[in-house]
Structures are given as C-alpha cells and as structure tokens.
C-alpha cells in the first residue's frame, strides 16, 4: 500500500535533481541573457526563440508584473541576474530609472531607428511598441462627429453612456498622467469627476469587457487600447468578433495635442551580467523582422518607421500622436492615482 507513495516520492526527488543539474549546466555556458518582462505575449516568446536561433544566446525569461520585477531587482541589488527589464508602459521604466536600476546605452543602431520622443533622454530605456488609448463608440448609436477629445467626454450629453475599466489599470493611470501634464492638476481632477458622473456602471472587467458592454448596449462609449480591438477582430470567439464589429475606433484630440499613446519598452539593467547580449537583444527587437511580428501578431504600432502597421490598424487611418515626453507619465503616475481616488474613480 505504501509502495506507490514511495515510488512517487522517489520520482519527484529525481525529477527535482534533474532540474537542478540542468540549471547548473546551463549557467556554466557563457552565452545567455536573463529577461525580466511584463510582456507575456506569445509574439514575444516567438521572438525570443528566433533571437536564440539567430544569435546562439539562450534567453531566460521571468514573467511577472513590472512592479514585482522592479521590487525584485531592488532587493537583488548588485548581484541581480537581470540583464534587461521589459515593461508595458513608460511609467514603470521611468520608475526603474529613478531607482537606479538601469544603465545608459549609446548605440548607433538603436539611435538610427528610434525618434527621440520614444526613448529616455538619457538612453536608459527604449520603446519597443506603441499603443494608443482611444475612444470606441457604438456604430449604430453614436455619430462620430459628436466626439472630439478626452476632455469632451465629461460633457453631460454622455451621462450614463461611458464604460471604462478600473483606475488601478496602468493604461488609465498613464492617460490621467497625460491629462495632468496637459491640462493641469485641478482640471484633471474635474475631468475624472466628470468621467465618474458619466459612467454607465462602476468600473469592472478588462478592456475587452468594455467593448462588449458597448456592443451589448450597456453604454455608447468606451476607452480602450487599440490592440485589444485588433485582437478581438481576429478572435476565435464569435461573440468577441461580433462585439468588435459593432464598434468603431475614434482617435481623440486630433485638433490639439493628439491621441494619448503609451509604449512598451526595454532597458538594460544597471548590473547586467550580460550587457553585450542585452544590447544585441534590443537591436534585434527593434529590427524590421521583430517589429513586423509585434505589429502583425499583437496589433501594436511598431516603433521602427520602416515597418508598416497591421492591415486592421491601417484601416483605422493614421492619427496624430501626443508627443508628450513619456517620462512625464512616470513622474505623474502617483499623482494620477491620488486624483483618481479623490474623484471616486473606483
């Protein structure tokens, strides 16, 4: 009766030994890179594999939220095995820089690809992809001519007509930070209050759920990231497809500063044990090949100007971007959260 238990235990012990051995072996081979990333997309996994094949450098990935990764790097200090940190917003990269976790990289290949507003002024981090936070509206109920800017959403005509996710979401925090930067703190707070007034329901769910709510008639407008619409339009799920087809994308603030964009980006860790490999990885991720993958499989806007947008993105037309220095988003992030709380944005 006890035998199967022992056999299992033995198997497990052997199994864990095997893993340890494996990790020891691999750590002795020199060519590798440790990636701390908040991007959990399949496209990234595919790109890392492609990079391994191309360069012969083994990519080790730790997936977690950027905040946790930053905390981990702080605790690990000089001995941190991290080579690069990848996040899905500029704010977190800025925070990592503030905490002295990143190092400047001057590299002509990178400089030749990236325009200055898509990287840190001290070259501590670089954008990999762009995403725009846009307004989607129900095609059958809303005339896009009535839409103009984020600021316009607090107009009473939209009372009980807007759905948006919770303020704990980083994309909302970045949007709020851009509004603080552009309109000032007081106006931003009034804006948040107005938004809360116009919400059709308390914030819940993710961006896709906001689109579904608009499609289902719970609201007329939603604020979402572009690539989610792209993904929904290519979904395996008929419901998501139907929902996405009932809405259309509107790029706000085209007459003034432009639509709010955020970036996902990468920085080299200050104590990176494999700095050379790290730079190689960044060069690769900015290359046309990699940028094409980002664009076509993840529906993000590429940062390499030689790469075209995905067809779906092209169909929405080009738009004017807010060229606010992205570091601002990081600096104002905390302020944004405080204002959200004060305005009662759940």
């Amino acid at each position: 009766m006890k035998n199967p238990l022992y056999i299992l235990l033995l198997a497990v012990v052997l199994f864990s030994c095997k893993n340890d051995n494996k990790s020891n072996e691999e750590k002795t081979t020199s060519e590798e890179i440790n990636v701390y990333t908040h991007r959990h997309y399949e496209s990234d996994q595919a790109l890392f594999e492609a990079f391994e094949k191309k360069s012969g450098i083994k990519v080790n990935v730790i997936n977690a939220s950027a905040d946790e990764l930053i905390q981990k790097m702080v605790l690990e200090g000089e001995q941190s095995p991290a080579d690069v940190l990848i996040t899905v917003d500029a704010g977190r990269l800025h925070r990592a820089k503030e905490k002295d976790l990143l190092q400047p990289i001057s590299n002509s290949v990178i400089d030749s690809i990236l325009p200055s507003h898509l990287k840190d002024e001290d070259n501590h981090w670089f954008a990999l992809t762009k995403r725009a936070r846009v307004i989607v509206y129900a095609k059958d109920r809303v005339d896009p001519l009535e839409l103009s800017s984020y600021e316009n959403l607090v107009d009473e005509q939209w009372e009980n007509k807007i759905v948006v996710r919770s303020s704990s979401n980083i994309y909302n925090q970045s949007l709020m930070a851009s509004i603080i930067a552009n309109d000032g703190e007081e106006a931003a707070k009034m804006w948040a209050k107005g938004m809360v007034n116009n919400m059709a329901r308390t914030p819940k769910g993710n961006d896709r759920d906001q689109v579904k709510a608009v499609a289902g008639g719970e609201a007329d407008l939603a604020i979402v990231n572009t690539y989610y619409i792209g993904k929904m339009l290519n979904s395996e799920d008929q419901t998501e497809l139907d929902a996405a087809e009932k809405v259309a994308v509107f790029f706000p603030n085209q007459d003034d500063r432009g639509t709010h964009i955020n970036v996902s980006g990468i920085g080299v860790a200050k104590h990176a044990p494999n700095k050379e490999s790290a730079v190689q990885l960044i060069e690769y991720l900015l290359s046309e090949d990699a940028q094409n993958t980002f664009a076509s499989s993840n529906y993000e806007y590429p940062v390499n100007p030689n790469v075209e947008n995905a067809p779906i993105l092209q169909s929405w037309g080009s738009f004017k971007e807010d060229t606010l220095n992205l570091s601002k988003l990081g600096e104002l992030n905390k302020k944004a959260v405080i204002l959200f709380d004060e305005a009662g944005w759940k």
Binding site: S168, Q173, G205, K334
Partner: peptide, 21 residues
C-alpha cells in the same frame, strides 16, 4: 476581485505598492 471591480483590502495593498509606489 480585481476583475469584478470589487476593491478589497488586498486591492489596497497592491494599489499602495504598485500604483502609489
């Protein structure tokens, strides 16, 4: 809780850690 939009004590922990830095 996060997905359902219900803020709990743990939400507070994460909000002060991550959002309020």
């Amino acid at each position: 809780a996060q997905y359902f939009g219900v803020n709990t004590f743990t939400t507070g922990i994460f909000r002060s850690w991550f959002s309020l830095e």
